[in-house]
Design a protein around this nucleic acid. Structure first.
Lengths: 203, 203
DNA sequence: TATTAATCATACAGTATGTATAATATTTAA
DNA sequence: TTAAATATTATACATACTGTATGATTAATA
């Protein structure tokens, strides 16, 4: 089964790649369905046939990028290590890798999410998943190290959520700070957010 | 001089207020020159006459909001107090007040700045001013408390720049954390960023 | 009083999104 | 093998928005 499915996927990937490339253009006004179709070497109607609308195309593009950004590694963070601080370290690393994997494009997509409510919905859902991951880590941390009372927990989660956001990563990377340094800065700030004073740094 | 100037300013304010209101609409696609004109009760051509283009209108809107957000207080931060930690505290407060003054609208304008390069230019300039302010504070801090070697200084500035950004404020406020708590969280993280352990907290 | 500034009306060019209808080719299913 | 379903394309069109051109009108200013 699937000579047709395969061809269909191939066109979809071709369109998504073209869309990704065009999203890097200086002005978003250059990002038109016509331009995407031309760059992907398909007709404009094919783009509509595959993605329904411009919004649909952009939503699919975010998924496309998430797949390429190794987000499946996130699962490993939670089952392998059981030291919560190490989990936090790995959690930060996985997201930093994702943010770094396509920084310019993610920046634009996030901006579009703040403007178009339909796109924004998808981003909010992903954000909530990140927050739930942090909750799991912090609950374990609270049990293993020192317990956090509810208001502390809420502050810690929101602070970590902020620190692991794309916006934080993007700001700290700025015009070229090395990836490892950015991760290091975020981890240190994260330590402070949960009141962790490192007796040792797990690696 | 200025019965004409006054009338002109009045229309401009009416248009900007209408634009501000419309920017809160669910979908940005509803933000059209036509809609703004109708909401301001002027003709569409008047909007063009006063602001040249949609981009021009949005740029003017950001200035409009900055004026309403008490950004002129920023000057006082630098001349009155001379304790650098207090300066940092006040700096954080002034920006937090600004970000809080029109959160939804600022969020949209920042998003538009990441999409439209012309709008983005203005935001980048403002960002750089914020960074220069932090540099002044940190140089004084470095002289009064303990000196920071260049790489530490660079990291500290970028971390503070990130912590005082709208995105950080917006994330920490989330769905309703009180303003004072948000400021408190940012200040604590800022302490950690510069390696400041509070012997006392200046108020 | 003559000029200038601000507003508005009408019209138009250009371009974008999205839909309708139908043709074509190719794969799948009966 | 034949019939049906799927994916792509072509042409055309409705709708909407930006931005400009031209000119009229009113009121303030020099």
């Amino acid at each position: 089964m699937g000579q047709r499915q395969a061809a269909r996927d191939k066109t979809r990937v071709r369109i998504l790649s073209a869309a990704r490339k065009l999203l890097l253009a200086k002005n978003f006004s250059e990002f038109t369905m016509e331009a995407v179709a031309r760059a992907a070497d398909v007709s404009r109607l094919t783009v509509y046939y595959q993605f329904d609308s411009k919004t649909g195309l952009l939503e699919a593009l975010y998924d496309f990028i998430a797949r390429r950004g190794n987000m499946q590694q996130l699962a490993e963070v939670f089952d392998k290590g059981n030291d919560p601080v190490r989990m936090l370290h790995d959690f930060i690393l996985v997201f930093a890798q994702f943010w770094a994997s396509d920084r310019q494009v993610i920046r634009r997509l996030h901006a579009l999410g703040a403007i178009d409510d339909e796109i924004g919905e998808g981003l909010r859902a992903r954000n909530e998943r990140r927050r739930r991951g942090l909750l799991v880590i912090l609950e374990r941390y609270s049990a293993v190290y020192h317990p956090l009372i509810p208001p502390q927990l809420a502050n810690a989660i929101d602070t970590l959520h902020m620190l692991t956001s794309f916006e934080t990563f993007d700001a700290l990377t700025g015009m070229g700070r090395p990836f490892e340094e950015v991760v290091e800065i975020i981890r240190k700030q994260a330590h402070h957010a949960i009141g962790f004073t490192p007796p040792f740094v797990p690696r």
